[in-house]
Simulated scan of single mutants.
Amino acid sequence: MTEQTYRWRRLDHPGLELMRITAREDAVEARSTIIDAGETPFALRCHWRLDGDWRSRLLRIEREDGHSLTIERREHGWRIDGEERPELADCLEIDVSATPFCNGLALRGLKHQPSELTALYVDAADLSVQPSRQRYDFVGPQRWRYVDLGVADGFRALLDFDTDGLVMRYEGLFERV
């Protein structure tokens, strides 16, 4: 078992995430606290349960105002707050808007091959969910270009990853501290 702590700061406005990842051979658990002091400030606690291949199995998000969201991967799709959501069945992985952690999960899901995917996008400010298309283009060793083809259509950013597959720098939005 290994435990590691990561911190990311926002680059576009004040904000910080503190994440603790515990990895075992057959499962990974990640717990984070996110404070976003942007135009619509919020704070979140996220608890991820991943399988040994780093695929999301369960995510619980709690906002400081008491609102929460539970996302669970099922055999043929996703369950949101206990309710089956067939329109999310094609989603490969979860993408929470307030953390760069998700980009590493998406790349693992794509087996580190340039490709497109549909993500289960979570707007962290209001905890709404919807499918959203994304593309990852290989740029160089540990560097990828993220292209949003859905919710934020046309948005692009360069992402630098460490050797563990976690974001070091997300152009214009996040950087590891």
Rank of each mutant, 00 (worst) to 15 (best):
19 M>H: 10
50 L>I: 02
120 L>F: 09
48 W>D: 12
69 L>R: 05
3 E>F: 06
87 E>C: 05
35 I>A: 15
146 Y>R: 09
40 T>D: 12
14 P>K: 06
7 R>E: 10
74 R>C: 14
59 L>I: 10
126 D>P: 03
10 R>H: 10
98 A>N: 06
166 L>E: 01
111 K>T: 08
102 C>E: 06
62 E>G: 12
67 H>V: 14
128 S>H: 12
31 R>E: 15
163 T>M: 07
170 Y>C: 01
143 R>K: 06
165 G>C: 02
78 W>A: 08
136 Y>V: 10
123 D>P: 02
36 D>L: 07
14 P>A: 08
49 R>G: 01
56 S>P: 04
123 D>W: 05
51 D>P: 03
171 E>L: 03
44 L>Y: 04
74 R>W: 04
46 C>Y: 13
173 L>K: 06
1 M>C: 11
112 H>N: 15
25 E>M: 00
158 L>T: 07
123 D>F: 09
87 E>H: 11
161 F>H: 02
92 L>N: 04
123 D>V: 09
168 M>T: 13
17 E>R: 08
60 R>Y: 13
146 Y>H: 13
5 T>W: 00
161 F>M: 14
163 T>I: 07
12 D>R: 06
1 M>F: 05
135 R>W: 08
157 A>W: 03
13 H>V: 03
109 G>I: 04
33 T>C: 14
88 L>V: 08
98 A>D: 07
3 E>P: 00
70 T>Y: 03
109 G>F: 03
149 L>C: 10
134 Q>H: 11
135 R>M: 09
156 R>H: 08
114 P>S: 14
158 L>F: 00
16 L>A: 12
37 A>Q: 13
86 P>H: 01
138 F>S: 10
158 L>Y: 01
142 Q>Y: 07
38 G>W: 08
12 D>C: 09
85 R>F: 08
66 G>K: 01
122 V>H: 00
108 R>D: 02
106 A>S: 07
33 T>N: 14
94 I>M: 08
62 E>Q: 15
35 I>N: 11
130 Q>M: 14
47 H>W: 14
134 Q>L: 08
20 R>I: 13
28 V>L: 03
111 K>S: 14
127 L>S: 06
51 D>Y: 04
65 D>E: 03
75 E>T: 10
85 R>T: 13
164 D>H: 11
43 A>M: 13
54 W>K: 05
69 L>A: 08
153 D>G: 08
135 R>Q: 15
41 P>I: 06
4 Q>M: 10
105 L>V: 10
58 L>R: 15
102 C>G: 09
99 T>H: 06
51 D>M: 07
89 A>M: 03
